[in-house]
Design a protein around this nucleic acid. Sequence first.
DNA 1: CGCTCGTTTGAGAGGACTCAAGGTAGGTGG
DNA 2: CCACCTACCTTGAGTCCTCTCAAACGAGCG
Lengths: 197, 197
Amino acid sequence: MHIDVDTLLAYGATPKEWHKGELIFSQGNEARYFHQIDSGMVKMTSLTNDAKEFIQGVFNDGNSFGEPALMLGKPYPASAYAVSDSIIYRLSKEKFLLLLEDHPVLFKKLFHIFCERLYCKTLTANILVNNSPEEKLIGFFDKIKSECKLKESGLVPYTRQQLADYTGLRVETVIRTLSKLSDKKIVAIQDHKVFYK
Amino acid sequence: MHIDVDTLLAYGATPKEWHKGELIFSQGNEARYFHQIDSGMVKMTSLTNDAKEFIQGVFNDGNSFGEPALMLGKPYPASAYAVSDSIIYRLSKEKFLLLLEDHPVLFKKLFHIFCERLYCKTLTANILVNNSPEEKLIGFFDKIKSECKLKESGLVPYTRQQLADYTGLRVETVIRTLSKLSDKKIVAIQDHKVFYK
DNA sequence: CGCTCGTTTGAGAGGACTCAAGGTAGGTGG
DNA sequence: CCACCTACCTTGAGTCCTCTCAAACGAGCG
């Protein structure tokens, strides 16, 4: 949990319900609110020229998102969608800044989260500039491994479409590349499930 | 200027000289020091599978770099090189944390810088996932435009090789794509110089 | 002049994307 | 139990275009 609910409410945050698939805010729009998820799941995505969807990040219960644009007063660089039915607390920019001012501990917490996100995005860039699909996928697997998002068995908890959305590849390319990686014994595939050690 | 020199020195920072081209720290190495440039220029780069160099960021007088890895205690996700002869202050991690603890103003300043970098890296990801060279270059031009790195005349202050290093393309592709963009009147080229409005 | 760095052009090959079609699995409802 | 739906996975064939490799030109500098 990032900011505890009582504190959020004390500063005037209001919960808002979003249904699966709904747009929470749109790329290019002005950032007005701080968002923190009470329950549900949110994805931040941007569209590529060829109408592919690129996943900038995924957020769960307790996570907040969209802060940089809010704090810089710039338009959102990506859109946010509810992946499942979600309840999200919203707090106006002014009150959010006040809250941070009053609570140095929360400020430090957010700072630490920003460190993690910066680190994560640097690794992501490393993955995206690789023009070999094999390297992109291996890079992505190493990244989620270091983030402990792999199951203990090494199971990759993503669909092929999601792997495509994270790496900027097409689904078919992901599938064909996974086959090659399987031939090379770099990943194992059982019942369509992908395993990586 | 990020942290003023007197403060840095008071906490035990020491200046170190680097010559053009020298490696300051290497991808994969443990982060031990906070780095702030007194004078000179530093680039952070990572290598792709096909031995291309990708520029994660460039830093000048007064800028600091490499903080996220330092604060997270993780290995550097990219390498840092001196682009020109540089003098860089180094401060041990413990003392740096102490300094931030003692100076909330500097802490907030760094926080703000992190906001900017996160925003920047999100835009960068948008550029990199585009698989059309034209869109990559236009995206990059829009990005540096929004960051006010374009000259007033619209001059793009980068060599073709640098454009390649920022977009993950090859030099030849950059050149050929610039020609197309010039035909389409999206950029203007005069005496090998590129102009974008 | 010779060197380096950046720029340019050409020809060729490889491979990712595109489009189209069909298969598989899980869940729902009659 | 079976038909149906939806979402995900798979495969094939063909095109396009970026990368690769090679060569050469221009500018700046010692």
